[in-house]
Amino acid sequence: MSFLEMLYFIVPSAILYATPLIFAGIGGVFSERSGVVNIGLEGIMVIGAFTGIYVNLEYYDVFGKNVIWVGILAALVAGLLFSLLLAVAAVSFRADQTVTGVALNMLGVAVAVFLVKLIYQKGQTDMIKAPIQRFEIPYLSDIPFLGKLLFQDVYSVSILAFAVAILAWFVIYKTPFGLRLRAVGEHPMAADTMGVNVTKMRYIAVMISGALGGVGGAAFAMTVSSDFSGSTIAGQGFMAIAAMIFGKWHPMGTLGAALFFGLAQTLSITGTQIDYIKEIPAVYLQILPYVLTILALAGFIGKATAPKASGQPYIKGKR
């Protein structure tokens, strides 16, 4: 395989693997920016993946090819509703956010597998008839080199993911809503004094993260796995959190980190077919995203600092 062919092979695949991480990672950015740690992204993605596959299997006859969008939308709603558990516990009930997140992860897998067994009487669903297909963007794919690299084998959800990342940047940094969101995450008391409703902002942020986490799960299930079982989303949610931290809680940084982690995942899976990569044991590529995240946090790759009030429930009137 020549170097160019190698690139044409790796880059589209890396973007595919990055797509769910972008959705969920951006979701994490919203939640953490408002001061709520969302360890539960993994469980939210599981719920999203299950919902997407379920809708795809059951309503293919009704909607045909468009069922993927119905599935994505259903996963969005399911993720949003599921994340309400975290919002209620972490914001209203002042629960430990990390513990609640862990409970959410357990609950997500348990509920999804329970429902699969209830509906299909087995631990794994059938393969879906309408997975998300790759397509070629007309005109753009005619550009030499870049066209073949970026626009020949694209998934519609990948384009959506990029759009979400850019939109998130705009919302968080260029709108009054975003300013309030960041204020609530850095110094909720100050924000409260200025008339920002801390509880409301945190509820909205957690719900956004739930919606995006759900979409991310569905995007993964309908492209990479094409079916659902308890091990479909094995660690994607945690890797999304890693991407968020490696991206320093910034939407664009998260986008870049997700792309990089997508590349690492691709290389660890398809690496055996590529000349130079073949020599590297897969385990190094598998652990790369996690090790890099630790190094980033330790300050070796630029210091990553969490929003100040992240992880603490806000209690009115408490100094």
Binding site: A95, V99, A103, L107, A110
Partner: peptide
Amino acid sequence: EIVAIIIALIIFFVASGYI
């Protein structure tokens, strides 16, 4: 999995001990 659901709920409620 029903038991995994129950366990997750118990953690959820213990964590929400405040309420």
